[in-house]
Amino acid sequence: MDHAYIEDNQIADRYVMGTLPPEEVERFENHYLSCPECLDRLDLVEPLQRGFKRMAGQDAAKLAATRQLAFVAWLARLGRSRQIGFLLAALLLIAVLPAGLLLRGTAERGRELALARSDLEQERQRSEQSAAETARLRSKLEANQRDLASQRQQLAQAQQPQSVTVLNLDVERGASLSGGEPTHNVRLPARSGWIILSIPIDPPFQRSYVAVLWDTHGHEVKRIADLKNQSGTLSFSLPPSLLPPGDYSLTIEGLSGRFTFRVLPPA
C-alpha cells in the first residue's frame, strides 16, 4: 500500500468512516502502524468526518423542530419490497429536505435502489423483445402505481402536523440512574406523535444492534431488534404510550455504557 493508492482511494477517510473492506483495513493498519504521514492524515480526517456527522445531526435536530423527521422515521421503516416506491418518495424528499439530512444514512438504501432501478431497466429491455413481457410489465407498473398511491397516502399522513420529539443521547453517555438525575429530559407530546431516540455508536460496527429500554426498577420495557448503523448512529422511534412519565435507561446489547433520560408529562 503506497501513498498514491491511499490518496486516490480515500483509504484514510473510508477507514475512519468504517466503509473500508476488511482486507483493506488490515493492509492499511499494517501500513500506518509505522507511518507518521498516514497517522497525521488520520488525525485530520477523524475530526473532519466527526464534524460532518455532527453538522448533519444538528441539521436533523433543527428539522425535527419543524416536524419533518417523522417523515424520515417513516422512510426508515420502509421494507425492501417498497424500494421502488421509496425511490419516488426520495425524489420528493430532495425537494423538501436539505442535503445533509437527506444523505444521512440513506447511502445503503441508495445502493439498493440503484439495484432496483437497474432491475427495472433490464426488465424494460427484455420487454422490448417480447409482447407478453410488455403486458406483464404493464400490470406490474399498475401495481406499482397502486403502491405509490398508497404510499402517497402514508406520506401525507406522515407529513400531517404531529408532534415529534428527538432525543440525542450522545451527551449523557454512561450516566447512571442510581448515580444521579438524568439530565436528558423529554416531554411527552400533548397529542399523537413520536419520540425518536438517536444514539451514537463507535466502530467497529456490528451488522445489526439490539437496543433495550429499561425502567427505573430494571424491568425491560421494550426490546428493539435489528437496528442498523447509519453513519455511526442508531435511530428509532417509540410511541409515547410506551413511555409513561419516569426515568428510563437504554442499553445496546454488546456495547458498554447506558443512556439515561427522564420522560416528563405533557405540558
Binding site: G57, Q58, S176
Partner: peptide, 25 residues
Amino acid sequence: TGELAQAVAPAPSQLQSVLLDEEAE
C-alpha cells in the same frame, strides 16, 4: 450499572461537547 458504565464510557465533558460543536462549525 453505574460504576462500570462510568469506567468504560465516561460522559463527554462540556469541553468535549464544545469541541465537537466547533468541529461541526
